[in-house]
Design a protein around this nucleic acid. Structure first.
Lengths: 258, 258
DNA sequence: CGGTTGTTTGACGCAGTTCAAGCGGAGTGG
DNA sequence: CCACTCCGCTTGAACTGCGTCAAACAACCG
Protein backbone atom coordinates (compact mmCIF):
# COMPACT_ATOMS: atom_id res chain seq x y z
CA UNK A 1 0.00 0.00 0.00
CA UNK A 2 2.96 2.26 0.43
CA UNK A 3 4.42 2.32 -3.06
CA UNK A 4 2.35 4.01 -5.74
CA UNK A 5 2.22 1.57 -8.62
CA UNK A 6 0.35 3.76 -11.00
CA UNK A 7 -0.15 2.32 -14.44
CA UNK A 8 -1.46 5.06 -16.71
CA UNK A 9 -2.12 2.75 -19.59
CA UNK A 10 -2.76 4.57 -22.82
CA UNK A 11 -6.11 3.15 -23.76
CA UNK A 12 -5.71 3.65 -27.48
CA UNK A 13 -7.64 0.47 -27.94
CA UNK A 14 -11.42 0.68 -27.77
CA UNK A 15 -13.31 0.50 -24.49
CA UNK A 16 -12.93 -3.27 -24.56
CA UNK A 17 -13.17 -4.63 -21.05
CA UNK A 18 -13.31 -1.14 -19.61
CA UNK A 19 -16.12 -0.59 -17.14
CA UNK A 20 -18.70 1.99 -17.95
CA UNK A 21 -18.03 5.53 -16.82
CA UNK A 22 -21.75 6.03 -16.41
CA UNK A 23 -21.60 4.42 -13.02
CA UNK A 24 -20.48 7.84 -11.75
CA UNK A 25 -23.73 9.28 -13.07
CA UNK A 26 -25.73 6.58 -11.31
CA UNK A 27 -23.98 7.55 -8.13
CA UNK A 28 -24.65 11.28 -8.52
CA UNK A 29 -28.27 10.68 -9.44
CA UNK A 30 -28.74 8.72 -6.26
CA UNK A 31 -28.02 12.06 -4.54
CA UNK A 32 -30.12 14.42 -6.61
CA UNK A 33 -31.59 15.07 -10.04
CA UNK A 34 -29.35 15.99 -12.92
CA UNK A 35 -30.34 17.58 -16.23
CA UNK A 36 -29.02 16.03 -19.43
CA UNK A 37 -26.70 19.02 -19.74
CA UNK A 38 -25.33 18.51 -16.26
CA UNK A 39 -24.78 14.83 -16.90
CA UNK A 40 -22.76 15.60 -19.97
CA UNK A 41 -20.84 18.34 -18.21
CA UNK A 42 -19.87 15.89 -15.51
CA UNK A 43 -18.84 13.16 -17.94
CA UNK A 44 -16.71 15.73 -19.73
CA UNK A 45 -14.75 16.22 -16.52
CA UNK A 46 -13.52 12.65 -16.58
CA UNK A 47 -10.21 12.04 -18.23
CA UNK A 48 -8.99 8.85 -19.80
CA UNK A 49 -9.29 5.95 -17.34
CA UNK A 50 -6.20 4.56 -15.65
CA UNK A 51 -5.54 1.28 -13.95
CA UNK A 52 -4.09 0.93 -10.47
CA UNK A 53 -2.74 -2.30 -9.11
CA UNK A 54 -4.06 -3.70 -5.84
CA UNK A 55 -1.94 -2.45 -2.97
CA UNK A 56 -0.92 0.83 -4.58
CA UNK A 57 -1.93 4.30 -3.49
CA UNK A 58 -4.33 6.19 -5.73
CA UNK A 59 -3.87 9.36 -3.69
CA UNK A 60 -1.02 9.69 -1.22
CA UNK A 61 -1.38 10.97 2.34
CA UNK A 62 -0.17 14.54 2.61
CA UNK A 63 -0.16 15.16 -1.14
CA UNK A 64 -1.60 18.24 -2.84
CA UNK A 65 -3.55 16.83 -5.77
CA UNK A 66 -4.49 19.02 -8.72
CA UNK A 67 -7.16 16.55 -9.78
CA UNK A 68 -9.95 14.71 -8.07
CA UNK A 69 -10.59 11.07 -8.80
CA UNK A 70 -13.65 9.01 -9.65
CA UNK A 71 -13.49 5.29 -9.01
CA UNK A 72 -14.91 3.37 -11.94
CA UNK A 73 -14.36 -0.22 -10.89
CA UNK A 74 -12.59 -2.15 -8.18
CA UNK A 75 -12.38 -1.50 -4.44
CA UNK A 76 -10.42 1.24 -2.75
CA UNK A 77 -10.37 2.72 0.73
CA UNK A 78 -9.56 5.87 2.60
CA UNK A 79 -7.03 4.96 5.23
CA UNK A 80 -4.55 6.29 7.70
CA UNK A 81 -1.34 4.46 8.52
CA UNK A 82 0.20 4.60 11.97
CA UNK A 83 3.58 3.76 13.38
CA UNK A 84 4.04 0.04 13.66
CA UNK A 85 2.10 -0.58 10.46
CA UNK A 86 -1.29 -0.21 12.09
CA UNK A 87 -3.95 0.90 9.68
CA UNK A 88 -7.42 2.29 10.13
CA UNK A 89 -9.67 2.28 7.10
CA UNK A 90 -12.14 5.16 7.21
CA UNK A 91 -14.30 4.16 4.28
CA UNK A 92 -14.64 1.63 1.53
CA UNK A 93 -15.03 2.94 -1.98
CA UNK A 94 -16.24 1.30 -5.15
CA UNK A 95 -17.69 2.07 -8.56
CA UNK A 96 -19.10 5.58 -8.81
CA UNK A 97 -17.50 6.93 -5.66
CA UNK A 98 -15.58 10.15 -5.99
CA UNK A 99 -12.58 9.46 -3.83
CA UNK A 100 -11.34 12.96 -3.22
CA UNK A 101 -13.38 16.01 -3.94
CA UNK A 102 -11.76 16.98 -0.67
CA UNK A 103 -8.60 17.81 -2.49
CA UNK A 104 -10.55 20.27 -4.64
CA UNK A 105 -11.69 22.22 -1.61
CA UNK A 106 -9.14 21.44 1.10
CA UNK A 107 -6.03 21.19 -1.11
CA UNK A 108 -4.02 18.88 1.13
CA UNK A 109 -4.85 15.23 1.75
CA UNK A 110 -5.14 14.29 5.41
CA UNK A 111 -5.27 10.58 4.57
CA UNK A 112 -4.46 8.26 1.71
CA UNK A 113 -6.67 6.48 -0.79
CA UNK A 114 -5.43 3.02 -1.57
CA UNK A 115 -6.48 0.37 -4.06
CA UNK A 116 -7.57 -2.79 -2.25
CA UNK A 117 -8.10 -4.62 -5.53
CA UNK A 118 -7.07 -3.71 -9.05
CA UNK A 119 -8.94 -0.52 -9.84
CA UNK A 120 -9.90 1.62 -12.78
CA UNK A 121 -10.15 5.33 -12.03
CA UNK A 122 -10.82 8.53 -13.97
CA UNK A 123 -9.18 11.78 -12.96
CA UNK A 124 -11.04 15.11 -12.85
CA UNK A 125 -8.74 18.16 -13.08
CA UNK A 126 -9.60 20.77 -10.50
CA UNK A 127 -9.73 23.63 -12.98
CA UNK A 128 -12.27 21.78 -15.08
CA UNK A 129 -14.25 21.04 -11.92
CA UNK A 130 -14.27 24.72 -11.06
CA UNK A 131 -15.51 25.73 -14.49
CA UNK A 132 -18.22 23.09 -14.47
CA UNK A 133 -19.49 23.99 -11.02
CA UNK A 134 -19.54 27.69 -11.90
CA UNK A 135 -21.61 26.93 -14.97
CA UNK A 136 -23.81 24.37 -13.17
CA UNK A 137 -24.18 25.28 -9.50
CA UNK A 138 -26.38 22.25 -9.08
CA UNK A 139 -23.36 20.06 -9.74
CA UNK A 140 -21.49 21.74 -6.92
CA UNK A 141 -24.51 21.33 -4.69
CA UNK A 142 -24.73 17.61 -5.45
CA UNK A 143 -21.04 17.13 -4.81
CA UNK A 144 -21.41 18.98 -1.54
CA UNK A 145 -24.26 16.61 -0.76
CA UNK A 146 -22.01 13.71 -1.57
CA UNK A 147 -19.35 14.86 0.88
CA UNK A 148 -21.99 15.39 3.56
CA UNK A 149 -23.41 11.91 3.09
CA UNK A 150 -19.92 10.53 3.46
CA UNK A 151 -19.49 12.64 6.54
CA UNK A 152 -22.65 11.09 7.98
CA UNK A 153 -21.18 7.65 7.31
CA UNK A 154 -18.02 8.63 9.17
CA UNK A 155 -20.17 9.60 12.13
CA UNK A 156 -21.91 6.23 12.04
CA UNK A 157 -18.62 4.38 11.94
CA UNK A 158 -17.27 6.52 14.73
CA UNK A 159 -20.30 5.81 16.88
CA UNK A 160 -20.00 2.12 16.10
CA UNK A 161 -16.31 1.81 16.86
CA UNK A 162 -16.77 3.86 20.00
CA UNK A 163 -19.85 2.23 21.47
CA UNK A 164 -20.86 -0.98 19.73
CA UNK A 165 -19.78 -4.57 20.11
CA UNK A 166 -17.67 -6.24 17.47
CA UNK A 167 -20.65 -8.25 16.25
CA UNK A 168 -22.84 -5.18 15.82
CA UNK A 169 -20.13 -3.39 13.94
CA UNK A 170 -19.70 -6.32 11.61
CA UNK A 171 -23.43 -6.52 10.94
CA UNK A 172 -23.58 -2.81 10.31
CA UNK A 173 -20.64 -2.98 7.95
CA UNK A 174 -22.25 -5.54 5.68
CA UNK A 175 -25.60 -3.75 5.72
CA UNK A 176 -23.99 -0.52 4.74
CA UNK A 177 -21.78 -1.85 1.98
CA UNK A 178 -24.61 -3.83 0.47
CA UNK A 179 -26.97 -0.87 0.44
CA UNK A 180 -24.39 1.44 -1.05
CA UNK A 181 -23.53 -1.10 -3.74
CA UNK A 182 -27.19 -1.60 -4.49
CA UNK A 183 -27.60 2.13 -5.09
CA UNK A 184 -25.19 1.97 -8.02
CA UNK A 185 -26.32 -1.38 -9.36
CA UNK A 186 -23.40 -3.47 -8.14
CA UNK A 187 -25.61 -6.10 -6.49
CA UNK A 188 -27.37 -9.10 -7.88
CA UNK A 189 -30.41 -10.06 -5.85
CA UNK A 190 -29.17 -10.65 -2.31
CA UNK A 191 -25.58 -11.06 -3.43
CA UNK A 192 -22.71 -8.78 -4.28
CA UNK A 193 -19.04 -9.12 -5.01
CA UNK A 194 -17.11 -7.63 -2.11
CA UNK A 195 -13.52 -7.80 -3.24
CA UNK A 196 -11.84 -7.24 0.09
CA UNK A 197 -9.99 -9.52 2.48
CA UNK A 198 -10.78 -10.15 6.13
CA UNK A 199 -7.65 -8.18 6.88
CA UNK A 200 -9.20 -5.17 5.13
CA UNK A 201 -12.45 -5.66 6.99
CA UNK A 202 -10.63 -5.79 10.30
CA UNK A 203 -9.05 -2.43 9.54
CA UNK A 204 -12.49 -1.05 8.73
CA UNK A 205 -13.95 -2.27 12.00
CA UNK A 206 -11.00 -1.36 14.18
CA UNK A 207 -10.64 -5.00 15.24
CA UNK A 208 -7.85 -7.54 15.07
CA UNK A 209 -7.83 -9.95 12.18
CA UNK A 210 -8.42 -12.91 14.46
CA UNK A 211 -11.43 -11.39 16.14
CA UNK A 212 -12.86 -10.24 12.82
CA UNK A 213 -12.69 -13.81 11.63
CA UNK A 214 -14.62 -14.94 14.68
CA UNK A 215 -17.25 -12.28 14.16
CA UNK A 216 -17.72 -13.43 10.57
CA UNK A 217 -18.13 -16.97 11.71
CA UNK A 218 -20.73 -15.91 14.20
CA UNK A 219 -22.66 -13.95 11.56
CA UNK A 220 -22.52 -17.00 9.33
CA UNK A 221 -23.56 -19.24 12.17
CA UNK A 222 -26.56 -17.02 12.82
CA UNK A 223 -27.46 -17.44 9.14
CA UNK A 224 -27.40 -13.70 8.56
CA UNK A 225 -24.80 -13.59 5.82
CA UNK A 226 -22.72 -15.83 3.64
CA UNK A 227 -19.28 -14.74 2.56
CA UNK A 228 -16.95 -16.87 0.58
CA UNK A 229 -14.59 -16.28 -2.31
CA UNK A 230 -15.43 -12.57 -2.29
CA UNK A 231 -19.16 -13.11 -2.67
CA UNK A 232 -21.33 -11.58 0.00
CA UNK A 233 -24.90 -12.80 0.34
CA UNK A 234 -27.34 -11.29 2.80
CA UNK A 235 -29.33 -14.26 4.03
CA UNK A 236 -31.52 -12.56 6.58
CA UNK A 237 -31.76 -8.86 6.05
CA UNK A 238 -34.10 -8.09 8.92
CA UNK A 239 -32.05 -9.94 11.50
CA UNK A 240 -28.79 -8.52 10.18
CA UNK A 241 -30.21 -5.06 10.53
CA UNK A 242 -31.39 -5.82 14.03
CA UNK A 243 -27.97 -7.12 15.04
CA UNK A 244 -26.37 -3.99 13.67
CA UNK A 245 -28.18 -1.77 16.12
CA UNK A 246 -27.84 -4.07 19.08
CA UNK A 247 -25.26 -2.81 21.50
CA UNK A 248 -23.78 -5.79 23.16
CA UNK A 249 -20.80 -3.97 24.45
CA UNK A 250 -21.44 -2.67 27.92
CA UNK A 251 -20.27 0.74 28.94
CA UNK A 252 -21.12 3.04 31.79
CA UNK A 253 -21.26 5.91 29.39
CA UNK A 254 -22.29 9.22 30.79
CA UNK A 255 -25.42 9.86 28.81
CA UNK A 256 -27.93 11.04 31.31
CA UNK A 257 -30.37 8.28 32.07
CA UNK A 258 -33.22 10.62 32.76
CA UNK B 1 -30.29 15.56 26.97
CA UNK B 2 -33.49 14.06 25.73
CA UNK B 3 -35.98 16.79 26.45
CA UNK B 4 -35.65 19.97 24.44
CA UNK B 5 -35.65 22.81 26.94
CA UNK B 6 -35.54 25.61 24.49
CA UNK B 7 -35.79 29.06 25.97
CA UNK B 8 -36.34 31.54 23.14
CA UNK B 9 -35.97 34.54 25.35
CA UNK B 10 -37.22 37.71 23.77
CA UNK B 11 -34.12 39.84 24.04
CA UNK B 12 -35.94 43.11 24.10
CA UNK B 13 -33.33 44.31 26.51
CA UNK B 14 -30.04 45.42 24.99
CA UNK B 15 -27.25 42.97 24.19
CA UNK B 16 -26.20 43.13 27.80
CA UNK B 17 -24.22 40.05 28.69
CA UNK B 18 -24.79 38.61 25.25
CA UNK B 19 -21.65 37.28 23.62
CA UNK B 20 -20.50 38.80 20.40
CA UNK B 21 -21.92 37.37 17.18
CA UNK B 22 -18.67 38.24 15.45
CA UNK B 23 -17.12 35.05 16.73
CA UNK B 24 -18.85 33.35 13.80
CA UNK B 25 -16.93 35.65 11.45
CA UNK B 26 -13.66 34.79 13.17
CA UNK B 27 -14.46 31.14 12.58
CA UNK B 28 -15.29 31.60 8.90
CA UNK B 29 -12.22 33.74 8.32
CA UNK B 30 -10.06 30.98 9.74
CA UNK B 31 -11.27 29.00 6.71
CA UNK B 32 -10.93 31.56 3.93
CA UNK B 33 -11.02 35.24 3.13
CA UNK B 34 -14.25 37.17 3.26
CA UNK B 35 -15.02 40.55 1.73
CA UNK B 36 -16.72 43.16 3.87
CA UNK B 37 -19.88 42.56 1.85
CA UNK B 38 -19.75 38.84 2.51
CA UNK B 39 -19.19 39.39 6.22
CA UNK B 40 -22.25 41.57 6.42
CA UNK B 41 -24.28 39.16 4.33
CA UNK B 42 -23.40 36.39 6.73
CA UNK B 43 -24.17 38.41 9.84
CA UNK B 44 -27.52 39.28 8.28
CA UNK B 45 -28.34 35.57 8.22
CA UNK B 46 -28.22 35.36 11.99
CA UNK B 47 -31.48 35.80 13.79
CA UNK B 48 -31.98 36.98 17.33
CA UNK B 49 -29.89 34.87 19.74
CA UNK B 50 -31.58 32.28 21.93
CA UNK B 51 -30.47 30.57 25.10
CA UNK B 52 -30.46 26.83 25.60
CA UNK B 53 -30.10 25.20 28.98
CA UNK B 54 -27.38 22.65 29.57
CA UNK B 55 -28.72 19.18 28.84
CA UNK B 56 -31.26 20.22 26.25
CA UNK B 57 -31.18 19.41 22.56
CA UNK B 58 -30.47 22.27 20.19
CA UNK B 59 -31.27 20.08 17.20
CA UNK B 60 -33.07 16.77 17.63
CA UNK B 61 -32.01 13.51 16.02
CA UNK B 62 -34.20 12.71 13.03
CA UNK B 63 -35.66 16.19 12.79
CA UNK B 64 -36.03 18.17 9.55
CA UNK B 65 -34.82 21.65 10.48
CA UNK B 66 -35.72 24.64 8.36
CA UNK B 67 -32.88 26.64 9.88
CA UNK B 68 -29.24 26.05 10.53
CA UNK B 69 -27.66 27.09 13.78
CA UNK B 70 -24.56 29.00 14.77
CA UNK B 71 -23.21 28.50 18.26
CA UNK B 72 -22.28 31.81 19.85
CA UNK B 73 -21.18 30.75 23.31
CA UNK B 74 -21.17 27.69 25.48
CA UNK B 75 -20.34 24.08 24.63
CA UNK B 76 -22.43 21.72 22.56
CA UNK B 77 -21.82 18.38 20.91
CA UNK B 78 -22.99 16.23 18.07
CA UNK B 79 -24.04 12.93 19.53
CA UNK B 80 -25.85 9.74 18.89
CA UNK B 81 -27.77 7.92 21.60
CA UNK B 82 -28.04 4.14 21.69
CA UNK B 83 -30.25 1.71 23.48
CA UNK B 84 -29.32 1.43 27.13
CA UNK B 85 -28.46 5.11 27.32
CA UNK B 86 -25.05 4.73 25.72
CA UNK B 87 -23.88 7.87 24.00
CA UNK B 88 -21.15 8.57 21.51
CA UNK B 89 -20.18 12.18 21.01
CA UNK B 90 -18.95 12.81 17.48
CA UNK B 91 -17.68 16.33 17.94
CA UNK B 92 -17.43 19.13 20.43
CA UNK B 93 -18.71 22.51 19.37
CA UNK B 94 -18.15 25.95 20.78
CA UNK B 95 -18.28 29.62 19.84
CA UNK B 96 -18.30 30.20 16.11
CA UNK B 97 -19.14 26.65 15.10
CA UNK B 98 -22.04 26.19 12.76
CA UNK B 99 -23.72 23.17 14.22
CA UNK B 100 -25.80 22.05 11.31
CA UNK B 101 -25.29 23.31 7.83
CA UNK B 102 -25.95 19.64 7.17
CA UNK B 103 -29.62 20.23 7.58
CA UNK B 104 -29.46 22.83 4.82
CA UNK B 105 -28.11 20.28 2.35
CA UNK B 106 -29.19 16.90 3.71
CA UNK B 107 -32.55 17.95 5.15
CA UNK B 108 -32.79 15.24 7.81
CA UNK B 109 -30.60 15.07 10.91
CA UNK B 110 -28.83 11.75 11.40
CA UNK B 111 -27.72 12.74 14.89
CA UNK B 112 -28.58 15.24 17.58
CA UNK B 113 -26.87 18.40 18.71
CA UNK B 114 -27.02 18.84 22.45
CA UNK B 115 -26.04 21.65 24.79
CA UNK B 116 -23.40 20.44 27.26
CA UNK B 117 -23.41 23.77 29.07
CA UNK B 118 -25.80 26.67 28.85
CA UNK B 119 -25.50 27.95 25.29
CA UNK B 120 -26.38 30.94 23.22
CA UNK B 121 -27.17 30.20 19.60
CA UNK B 122 -28.32 32.12 16.54
CA UNK B 123 -30.53 30.50 13.94
CA UNK B 124 -29.99 30.91 10.19
CA UNK B 125 -33.16 30.22 8.14
CA UNK B 126 -32.42 27.99 5.16
CA UNK B 127 -34.12 30.24 2.64
CA UNK B 128 -31.95 33.16 3.72
CA UNK B 129 -28.90 30.90 3.49
CA UNK B 130 -29.87 29.95 -0.05
CA UNK B 131 -30.26 33.56 -1.14
CA UNK B 132 -26.97 34.57 0.43
CA UNK B 133 -25.01 31.72 -1.11
CA UNK B 134 -26.53 32.43 -4.53
CA UNK B 135 -25.48 36.02 -4.26
CA UNK B 136 -22.06 35.19 -2.73
CA UNK B 137 -20.83 31.83 -4.02
CA UNK B 138 -17.71 32.30 -1.94
CA UNK B 139 -19.85 32.00 1.19
CA UNK B 140 -21.10 28.62 -0.02
CA UNK B 141 -17.57 27.59 -0.81
CA UNK B 142 -16.34 28.51 2.66
CA UNK B 143 -19.23 26.67 4.29
CA UNK B 144 -18.42 23.65 2.15
CA UNK B 145 -14.86 23.97 3.38
CA UNK B 146 -16.12 24.08 6.93
CA UNK B 147 -18.03 20.84 6.52
CA UNK B 148 -15.00 19.20 4.93
CA UNK B 149 -12.72 20.26 7.75
CA UNK B 150 -15.19 18.78 10.18
CA UNK B 151 -15.26 15.65 8.08
CA UNK B 152 -11.48 15.43 8.37
CA UNK B 153 -11.81 15.69 12.14
CA UNK B 154 -14.32 12.83 12.11
CA UNK B 155 -11.76 10.74 10.25
CA UNK B 156 -9.12 11.54 12.83
CA UNK B 157 -11.41 10.59 15.68
CA UNK B 158 -12.40 7.42 13.89
CA UNK B 159 -8.77 6.45 13.36
CA UNK B 160 -8.04 7.23 16.99
CA UNK B 161 -10.93 5.27 18.45
CA UNK B 162 -10.17 2.39 16.12
CA UNK B 163 -6.43 2.11 16.50
CA UNK B 164 -5.05 4.23 19.32
CA UNK B 165 -4.67 3.62 23.03
CA UNK B 166 -6.83 5.44 25.52
CA UNK B 167 -3.93 7.69 26.52
CA UNK B 168 -3.18 8.72 22.93
CA UNK B 169 -6.78 9.50 22.31
CA UNK B 170 -6.93 11.64 25.39
CA UNK B 171 -3.81 13.54 24.41
CA UNK B 172 -5.15 14.05 20.91
CA UNK B 173 -8.44 15.29 22.24
CA UNK B 174 -6.93 18.07 24.30
CA UNK B 175 -4.56 19.10 21.50
CA UNK B 176 -7.42 19.37 19.08
CA UNK B 177 -9.81 21.25 21.30
CA UNK B 178 -7.16 23.71 22.35
CA UNK B 179 -6.09 24.44 18.78
CA UNK B 180 -9.64 24.87 17.60
CA UNK B 181 -10.44 27.19 20.48
CA UNK B 182 -7.29 29.16 19.81
CA UNK B 183 -8.41 29.73 16.21
CA UNK B 184 -11.46 31.66 17.40
CA UNK B 185 -9.77 33.43 20.27
CA UNK B 186 -11.21 31.38 23.12
CA UNK B 187 -7.83 30.67 24.71
CA UNK B 188 -5.72 32.68 27.06
CA UNK B 189 -2.05 31.83 26.79
CA UNK B 190 -1.76 28.11 27.47
CA UNK B 191 -5.13 27.95 29.13
CA UNK B 192 -8.71 27.70 28.02
CA UNK B 193 -12.07 27.15 29.61
CA UNK B 194 -13.31 23.73 28.61
CA UNK B 195 -16.79 23.57 30.03
CA UNK B 196 -17.35 19.86 29.80
CA UNK B 197 -17.42 17.07 32.36
CA UNK B 198 -15.32 13.92 32.40
CA UNK B 199 -18.48 12.09 31.50
CA UNK B 200 -18.71 14.15 28.33
CA UNK B 201 -15.06 13.51 27.55
CA UNK B 202 -15.51 9.79 28.01
CA UNK B 203 -18.31 9.84 25.43
CA UNK B 204 -16.02 11.73 23.05
CA UNK B 205 -13.23 9.21 23.46
CA UNK B 206 -15.41 6.11 23.41
CA UNK B 207 -14.16 5.14 26.87
CA UNK B 208 -15.80 4.46 30.18
CA UNK B 209 -15.97 7.25 32.69
CA UNK B 210 -13.69 5.43 35.10
CA UNK B 211 -11.01 4.80 32.53
CA UNK B 212 -11.22 8.35 31.25
CA UNK B 213 -10.56 9.56 34.75
CA UNK B 214 -7.47 7.37 34.94
CA UNK B 215 -6.23 8.65 31.60
CA UNK B 216 -6.62 12.21 32.83
CA UNK B 217 -4.68 11.41 35.93
CA UNK B 218 -1.92 9.91 33.87
CA UNK B 219 -1.76 12.96 31.60
CA UNK B 220 -1.59 15.12 34.69
CA UNK B 221 1.03 12.88 36.22
CA UNK B 222 3.13 13.21 33.08
CA UNK B 223 2.84 16.99 33.48
CA UNK B 224 1.33 17.40 30.03
CA UNK B 225 -1.90 19.09 31.02
CA UNK B 226 -3.70 20.52 33.99
CA UNK B 227 -7.44 20.32 34.19
CA UNK B 228 -9.43 21.47 37.13
CA UNK B 229 -12.66 23.34 37.58
CA UNK B 230 -13.19 23.50 33.83
CA UNK B 231 -9.84 25.14 33.13
CA UNK B 232 -7.57 23.31 30.74
CA UNK B 233 -3.88 24.25 30.69
CA UNK B 234 -1.44 22.72 28.27
CA UNK B 235 1.72 22.34 30.30
CA UNK B 236 3.92 20.61 27.75
CA UNK B 237 2.69 21.06 24.24
CA UNK B 238 5.44 19.12 22.50
CA UNK B 239 5.12 16.07 24.71
CA UNK B 240 1.34 16.15 24.57
CA UNK B 241 1.51 16.17 20.82
CA UNK B 242 3.97 13.31 20.83
CA UNK B 243 1.75 11.26 23.12
CA UNK B 244 -1.18 11.89 20.82
CA UNK B 245 0.47 10.12 17.92
CA UNK B 246 1.93 7.30 19.98
CA UNK B 247 0.03 4.11 19.45
CA UNK B 248 0.28 2.17 22.62
CA UNK B 249 -2.53 -0.16 21.79
CA UNK B 250 -1.23 -3.25 20.11
CA UNK B 251 -3.08 -4.77 17.23
CA UNK B 252 -2.18 -7.25 14.57
CA UNK B 253 -3.82 -5.07 12.01
CA UNK B 254 -3.59 -6.16 8.47
CA UNK B 255 -1.71 -3.23 6.99
CA UNK B 256 0.98 -4.74 4.89
CA UNK B 257 4.25 -4.49 6.71
CA UNK B 258 6.31 -4.11 3.59
C1' DC C 1 -26.33 22.57 55.29
C1' DG C 2 -28.55 19.01 52.61
C1' DG C 3 -29.07 17.63 47.86
C1' DT C 4 -27.27 17.02 43.51
C1' DT C 5 -23.77 16.56 40.19
C1' DG C 6 -18.99 15.54 39.20
C1' DT C 7 -14.56 13.14 40.52
C1' DT C 8 -11.73 9.55 42.43
C1' DT C 9 -10.40 4.93 44.10
C1' DG C 10 -10.26 -0.19 44.49
C1' DA C 11 -11.38 -4.89 43.14
C1' DC C 12 -12.70 -7.86 39.73
C1' DG C 13 -14.28 -9.56 35.06
C1' DC C 14 -14.42 -9.97 30.11
C1' DA C 15 -14.28 -8.65 25.16
C1' DG C 16 -11.00 -8.46 22.24
C1' DT C 17 -5.74 -8.85 21.44
C1' DT C 18 -1.57 -11.45 20.92
C1' DC C 19 1.09 -15.34 19.87
C1' DA C 20 1.60 -19.39 17.41
C1' DA C 21 0.62 -22.78 14.30
C1' DG C 22 -1.86 -25.32 10.73
C1' DC C 23 -4.76 -25.39 6.44
C1' DG C 24 -6.29 -24.63 1.70
C1' DG C 25 -6.36 -22.44 -2.70
C1' DA C 26 -4.18 -19.95 -6.46
C1' DG C 27 -0.44 -18.93 -8.97
C1' DT C 28 4.31 -20.12 -10.97
C1' DG C 29 8.21 -22.33 -12.48
C1' DG C 30 10.43 -26.56 -13.61
C1' DC D 1 1.54 -32.33 -13.46
C1' DC D 2 3.94 -31.92 -9.40
C1' DA D 3 6.62 -29.06 -6.00
C1' DC D 4 7.03 -24.79 -4.03
C1' DT D 5 5.46 -20.49 -2.33
C1' DC D 6 2.45 -16.90 -1.28
C1' DC D 7 -1.55 -15.25 0.71
C1' DG D 8 -5.71 -15.48 2.98
C1' DC D 9 -8.43 -18.04 6.34
C1' DT D 10 -9.02 -20.68 10.66
C1' DT D 11 -8.15 -22.41 15.23
C1' DG D 12 -6.49 -22.71 20.10
C1' DA D 13 -4.62 -20.81 24.23
C1' DA D 14 -2.90 -17.26 27.08
C1' DC D 15 -2.96 -12.42 28.20
C1' DT D 16 -4.50 -7.47 29.03
C1' DG D 17 -6.60 -2.91 28.39
C1' DC D 18 -10.44 -1.33 29.48
C1' DG D 19 -15.22 -1.98 31.36
C1' DT D 20 -18.21 -2.88 35.36
C1' DC D 21 -19.54 -2.64 40.05
C1' DA D 22 -19.53 -0.29 44.22
C1' DA D 23 -18.60 3.19 47.27
C1' DA D 24 -16.57 7.27 49.04
C1' DC D 25 -15.29 11.96 48.37
C1' DA D 26 -15.45 16.80 46.69
C1' DA D 27 -17.57 20.78 44.82
C1' DC D 28 -21.26 23.56 43.79
C1' DC D 29 -25.77 25.83 44.77
C1' DG D 30 -29.80 27.45 46.31
Amino acid sequence: MSVAAQTPIAFAKPQSGLPDLHITIRKLESLGDLSAEERNAFLDLLEKPQRFAAGSDIVADGSLPTESTALISGFACRYKLFSGGRRQIMSLQFGGDITDIHSYVLKKMDHAVGALTDCVIARMPHDKVRKATERFPNLAYIMWRDTLVESAIFRLWLAGVGRKSALSRGAHFFCEQFMRMEAVGLTNGNSATLGVTQTDISDCLGLSLVHTNRVLQELRGMRLIELKSKTLTITDWAELNASASLILRTSNSGARKK
